[in-house]
Design a protein around this nucleic acid. Structure first.
Length: 153
DNA sequence: GCCAACGTTGGC
DNA sequence: GCCAACGTTGGC
């Protein structure tokens, strides 16, 4: 069982949007970074849990938890010329991008903000908190996961 | 809106 | 294989 952190811009797709989906489940499309893709494709397994992180917004931070309910498969938005995530180098036979399906588990009663996360000694090694890190999917250690869970109560 | 940090592209 | 130019991310 692995833990992750997945970023999304609430103006594009926030946790409230996920809550509004049928079954509170949706595919996580648009990953166009190889490192993030590799984490998703090679690391994410059914039943893994991930923090839902709101980025590029007034209060960036962790807003809830999702579960991985389908492992990596072809990200069809890469093949759709109408899509914002269209990648002309991809074909249905050779699509380098993939996505997973996530399902909402919990919405926190408040945002655990980035400013709150940063000074935590227990999170000093957390990938997302490193300066300049822009990866939209990163692993979270069990220790970090447990520590963050204590923070929202 | 600014800009630092980083990834990708493409000429050579 | 190098690296300059460019594009994107995301905090502030």
């Amino acid at each position: 069982m692995n833990y992750w952190l997945m970023k999304s811009e609430p103006s594009t797709f926030g946790i409230a949007d996920l809550a509004a989906m049928p079954g509170q489940s949706e595919h996580w499309d648009g990953i166009r970074n190889y490192q993030a893709r590799n984490f998703m494709r090679d690391g994410m397994r059914l039943g893994d849990l991930a923090f839902f992180y709101h980025s590029n917004c007034p209060m960036p931070g962790i807003v809830g938890i999702v579960a991985i309910v389908r492992e990596a498969y072809s990200d069809f938005t890469a093949l759709d010329p109408e899509s914002h995530y269209y990648d002309p180098k991809c074909t249905s036979d050779n699509n380098r991008w993939c996505m997973v399906d996530v399902k909402l588990q919990q919405i926190f009663s408040r945002t655990i903000s980035l400013t709150e996360l940063k000074p935590q000694d227990a999170l000093a090694d957390m990938l997302t908190l490193r300066k300049g890190n822009r990866l939209s999917i990163t692993p979270v250690s069990p220790t970090e996961w447990a520590h963050i869970l204590t923070m929202h109560r």
